[in-house]
Design a binder for these strands. Structure first.
Lengths: 253, 253
DNA sequence: GCGCGCCCTTGATCCGGATCAAGAGGCGCG
DNA sequence: CGCGCCTCTTGATCCGGATCAAGGGCGCGC
């Protein structure tokens, strides 16, 4: 399990790290930024939200943030690094459920079963904000903005979960995956066209329900078609519109 | 679009209809029963929850409960009948997202986008309870039980959405589908082994990401193996354990 | 009653992606 | 430095399920 922290051969772009924030501004790129803005900076409620946060990490590549069956006590926002969530089915096969970038939230699917239904594994050295869920719920009851923000986070994840469900070709899946990743990086203020794939081909394949060989082949084909430039895990999207068009049936709008 | 309401050739079992309830008891099989029980019957809060409900229907087979793009104002609990939710992608292909039985809730994935991201279409004559979402949110802020119930509903749906995502054989999907349907009927107090499939083979196929022909073939095979008895849309599960075993990799526990 | 359309079933063929196989490149470690 | 492991790539073959095709049953409207 080598550390992904060191730069690779190529000059790596600055590592995506969510803005650290401070008492007054909190993390600007954080998934809860909206909730904070809604109540206005400096209000006592923001201080309360800020207080129930605990910074945890670093987790090195391969380390678990939580494990299947752990009692559910908190949700986590990614501060830096990348995480994958995955389930292991009864036959011992891993199922990658998703990848989470700085500013995104993991653990929401643990609310109902009251224990984590999946593992969360760091793909590179990562840091998190830990939000105690009981405290968060109590705060939500007093702050409508926080409550509706939680509802929206949950509902949003519902929407994205149904995306990878359809029956689509390997090309469509791959194109949509890369486009989506780029968009999410862009949303958080990083480059949406040039970034590191922090997960292995095997993880991508598993997530997209393809074989690792197929992922490799599709990436090669995209490279030959001039859609992307890819060397190891370093990716450059040369034709974002073309890529988006291939994956259009899986992508919103 | 013929009405599914009339009984078929076979003597149909009593049509699943969620208990109508009254001011004191509300719908016992309803998805919100838990929230009501949590605060105790007869309390003023229950009256409030009961008050924000509006009964709507009947919707005949093929009619829309809501359409993609409709502004989101309310969620719906199925009171009687069955609904499918589906999206139509940019190529005009339909994607069935789910089937909802009496007592289950539709519309949760509309919270984030603030408009319905899918269509909801009655598969047989159906009735609903309509919960105004703004009113529900306001109530949730005052009643922790309602709030946590909403969180749990959302989180639960997150869990089930990731089920059909994996790459599984047609047999596994079909077995898991039938087992799941049976379980859900059983949870609501109906027979879990004998019921009507209220959706067409085409809808099942679309939902499971299979061809309609494959669904037909798998059902025939299951019948020949003595796992089920099926005549048209009337289904009897003869070997629940066997069926569950085939679909085990998709099923919880 | 008769014909038409829809849903369902079953058979034949085809194809995308899985699987099997082999080899290359990089990295950590002894 | 050399070895072994792991990841990635590329080629060859295979298979499950899609697609194409045909036919039956039933409900409904004329």
């Amino acid at each position: 399990m080598r550390s992904e922290n060191q730069a690779g051969r190529l000059p790596a772009p600055p590592s995506p790290i969510a803005d650290d924030g401070d008492e007054a501004h909190f993390c600007r790129t954080c998934a809860f930024a909206g909730a904070c803005q809604a109540v206005g900076y400096g209000k006592p409620e923001l201080r309360e939200l800020h207080c129930l946060v605990e910074h945890v990490g670093p987790f090195r590549s391969g380390e678990h943030v939580f494990r299947t069956g752990n009692p559910f006590r908190a949700i986590f926002a990614v501060r830096s690094g990348t995480v994958k969530t995955s389930m292991v089915d009864k036959e011992g096969r891993e199922q990658v459920l998703g990848f989470y970038l700085p500013g995104e939230v993991i653990g929401l699917n643990a609310i109902y079963p009251e224990q984590f239904p999946c593992d969360a594994i760091a793909l590179e050295t990562s840091h998190f904000c830990r939000f105690s869920f009981p405290a968060m719920s109590a705060l939500a009851a007093r702050m409508p903005a926080v409550q509706s923000h939680l509802f929206r986070l949950l509902s949003k994840e519902l929407g994205s979960a149904s995306l990878l469900a359809g029956d689509h070709s390997a090309d469509e899946r791959m194109a949509a995956f890369l486009t989506d990743l780029g968009q999410r990086y862009a949303t958080r203020g990083f480059s949406g066209t040039e970034f590191q794939l922090s997960m292995s081909r095997g993880d991508i394949a598993n997530y997209l329900r393809l074989a690792a060989e197929t992922v490799s082949r599709v990436l090669s084909r995209f490279r030959n078609q001039g859609l992307i430039q890819v060397e190891g895990r370093q990716l450059l999207i040369r034709d974002p519109a073309g890529l988006r068009h291939i994956g259009r049936s899986l992508l919103p709008d």
